[in-house]
Design a protein around this nucleic acid. Structure first.
Length: 361
DNA sequence: TAGGCCATCTGGTCCT
DNA sequence: AGGACCAGATGGCCTA
């Protein structure tokens, strides 16, 4: 016969899904045989070391009816392992109904807290998804891919700042996709309106440039200038259509031609939008230096365009970002760093080595 | 059907 | 004692 370990559905919405079932012997039926064996493998000393107080409540609850006062209960040695040494450590106190109830409540509260904590964590992750490139409500990046992409994105921005040049799209995509799974790589490529084929084609075209400007698209009500990135081919899978076309385009020329600058400290940032970064220049490092073996290894899930590095075009444009949100008539750069205050000094040596080490880890 | 991703439970550890 | 954090386990869902 099975009995519920906990039976408050309001606090344990999915209890049936999980453990929490105990049989009359007190062992948790939901635990696999392997786990049970693992617990036994730990041995008495290990178990005694860790089983204490509330941690012990579970087995106490389960075995309440069998236990005697001041008698230790062996978690997994009850059946047929009589010559095992006696447990050491504090003797178990009898589980009174009151203690039992307290244990249950404690566990339920802990579960609720844990759920809340994980929800908060997921919420933060959702916010992160919104500020990294390739945000899609319908095709969410997985947690791990979100973190990887965010890391790459930070790296890419750092490179831009360091070099003060626009990276070419190929380099940018390579950087963003480093270490990402193939589906995510496709997603990013789709975000950039690139696919492997024309990606390679562009690579092979001598002097290929990703000139910005011309067609425009509307991003959250704001017109954006973006050249090929807003063109027709959204070919990297079905999700490309659902992607917002904002991540890689900006009023690029406007910023640099007119000297306008993005505003960063907007107080009303809601985290809804990826920074509208447009990158049509170079990552000097990526371009001038062959990838290290570590870096090469980082491409294991990536697009594997490393053989094309040498043929990369070397256009060196300026770096630009979209003008800021409502006040400036453009959009969503509230979460951008204050680039108008950034002056890239080429003789300055930022903590590049650390960045490099970080990126290639 | 296998594998990836996820939510949840659970017990341990550390800290207040 | 209790909360935060963590990692392991488990089962559900989805997709190739």
């Amino acid at each position: 016969m099975l009995t519920r370990l906990f039976n408050e559905p309001s606090l344990l919405p999915d209890m049936e899904k999980f453990g929490g079932w105990v049989d009359d012997s007190g062992s948790e039926c939901s635990k696999t045989k392997d786990e049970e064996q693992e617990r036994c493998r730990l041995g008495d000393e290990d178990l005694d070391d860790v089983k204490d107080g509330s941690s012990r409540a579970q087995s106490e609850i389960a075995g309440e009816e069998d236990e005697d006062d001041d008698v230790d209960e062996d978690d997994c040695g009850d059946e047929g392992d009589g010559d095992r040494p006696k447990k050491r450590g504090p003797k178990k106190r009898k589980m009174t109904p009151a203690r039992l109830e307290r244990s249950k409540v404690r566990r339920q509260k802990a579960n609720a807290r844990e759920r809340t904590r994980m929800h908060d964590l997921n919420s933060a992750l959702d916010n992160l998804r919104k500020v990294v490139p390739c945000y899609s409500k319908t095709q969410k990046l997985s947690k791990i891919e979100t973190l990887r992409l965010a890391k790459n994105y930070i790296w890419a921005l750092s490179e831009i700042l360091r070099n003060g040049k626009r990276p070419d799209v190929v380099s940018y995509v390579q950087t963003l996709c480093k270490g990402l799974s193939q589906p995510t790589t496709n997603l990013v490529a789709g975000c950039l309106q690139l696919n492997s084929r024309n990606f390679l084609t562009e690579q092979c075209q001598e002097g290929a440039r990703f000139h910005l400007p011309t067609p425009s698209f509307s991003m959250h009500g704001y017109p954006y200038q973006c050249s090929r990135l807003s063109s027709t081919h959204s070919q990297s899978g079905s999700n490309a259509h659902s992607l917002r076309n904002h991540s890689f385009c900006s009023a690029y020329e406007a910023l640099y031609a007119e000297g306008t600058s993005p505003e960063y400290n907007s107080p009303d940032y809601e985290g809804h939008h990826s920074p509208p970064v447009c990158v049509n220049g170079n990552f000097a490092l990526r371009q001038q230096e062959p990838l290290s073996p570590e870096a090469e290894r980082g491409y294991q899930y990536s697009m594997h365009y490393t053989s094309l590095h040498g043929s990369r075009s070397s256009t060196a444009h300026g770096l630009a970002y979209a003008p800021s949100g409502a006040r400036s008539g453009s959009a969503h750069s509230e979460n951008l760093p204050p680039f108008h205050d950034v002056h890239v000094h080429h003789d300055r040596a930022p903590a590049y080595e650390e960045l490099n080490a970080f990126f290639h880890n």
